[in-house]
Design a protein around this nucleic acid. Structure first.
Lengths: 143, 143
DNA sequence: GTTTTTCATAGTATAACAGTATGTTGGTAT
DNA sequence: ATACCAACATACTGTTATACTATGAAAAAC
């Protein structure tokens, strides 16, 4: 499993913020209820997003979280990499890891590199805006 | 991490067999030594490959394992799926899992489906033959 | 100064990973 | 026949990650 609940929940939180905030702070309790995810667990997830400047927190009454950037400025691949640490499909494709001692005789390295690239290309091609429900497309507008 | 040592080692074993066997049985001990992997651990991996008809085992002296099919008939994606159980990047993309109860309101499903497809397309586009060192390409031929 | 919300730290049950250990079965060579 | 060899089978183990829960401190609004 490449993506754990951390990455999946993070995307849902960001989409929720993009869909519900009008430059207002939203409290985690609301998001947790809408998304049916434990608020306490979400705290640990959102903390990571704050640390990486994806969202901004404000304490106290009327506080909460909001996106630090516009939804179309938030890259999905970057978010997933923050939450999962890495999206490398194998250990030898993680930048932090020192090169494999068998690299000289390895028959599979290029195969893994290609898979790594495919995953990165795909995930990096989406923004949070791409994942929000298009307002005009399916909103039943009624006066 | 999408791929564990099970999947990585399985590919190395199959490549080793493809490169060293001339329709002969190779004993695990030799593969384990060449690949510098615990023979005992490899046993558990090869057992899976036998069960799935990727390799064939023969007991006793002169016995060992060999590929059940030609290297270019063995699909890398299939091998990885056998070893890892699934290559789905998220739980909701596993065929065996029952559909997510939030599917109606899920904003991320199509994103995950796309990632799942990208991984499957890539891994299914390789055979073991693609991963073996091409004999003619870089062998220093000397009389 | 009380309420509200984020922020911070610590703990916990479960499962998967990456093996190890011991023994059995079935072929081969002598 | 029997000694040997290598696959086959089952059970166990240490470590790490996952997916949380619990308790409390800090700051902002009222």
């Amino acid at each position: 499993m490449l993506i754990s609940t951390k990455g999946r929940y993070a995307l849902r939180v960001l989409i929720d913020m993009a869909e519900h905030s009008g430059s207002e702070y939203i409290k985690l309790k609301d998001i947790a209820e809408r998304q049916e995810i434990s608020e306490k667990y979400l705290e640990s997830i959102v903390k990571q997003l704050v640390k990486n400047k994806i969202v901004t927190g404000l304490r106290g009454k009327g506080g909460g979280y909001k996106l630090s950037k516009a939804p179309d400025e938030i890259n999905v691949g970057e978010v997933l990499r923050i939450m999962e640490g890495s999206l490398a499909p194998v250990a030898c494709m993680e930048e932090t890891n020192l090169p494999c001692p068998r690299v000289g005789e390895c028959r599979t390295r290029e195969f893994w590199r290609g898979l790594n690239d495919a995953i990165r290309r795909y995930t990096d091609s989406f923004t949070i805006a791409d994942l929000t429900r298009s307002y005009s497309a399916d909103y039943d507008y009624v006066i």
